[in-house]
Amino acid sequence: MQIVLVDDEHVSVFVTKKILEREGIADELHAFELPEEALRYVQQSIPAHIPNVILLDLNMPGLNGWEFLQSLQPYENQLLGQCFIYILTSSLDPADTVRSSEFPLVSGLIHKPLDRIQVRAIFDQVVTKQL
Rank of each mutant, 00 (worst) to 15 (best):
S90R: 09
A48E: 13
D96M: 09
I3Y: 05
Q118S: 14
K18W: 08
I3R: 09
L105P: 08
A38K: 04
P61Y: 05
T97V: 15
I3N: 08
F14G: 14
I85W: 05
H30I: 10
D124Y: 09
L114Q: 05
A38D: 04
A48W: 10
L72V: 05
S91P: 12
S90M: 11
V106W: 01
S71K: 11
S100W: 11
F68K: 10
Y41I: 04
Y41N: 07
I54T: 09
N64F: 00
Q125K: 15
V106A: 02
H10A: 15
Q125L: 14
F103T: 12
E28V: 01
P113E: 00
P94E: 13
P94R: 13
W66G: 07
N77I: 12
R120V: 08
R99G: 06
D57N: 09
S45L: 01
N59H: 14
F68I: 06
D96Y: 14
A31P: 09
V98H: 03
K129T: 14
L88P: 02
V13I: 15
Q78F: 08
V4I: 12
V15M: 14
Q125Y: 12
L105C: 08
M60A: 07
S45W: 03
S71P: 05
S101F: 00
N52D: 15
L105W: 00
Q44S: 07
L79N: 06
D124P: 11
E76Y: 00
C83S: 09
V119H: 02
A121M: 15
Q130R: 12
N64H: 02
L109M: 11
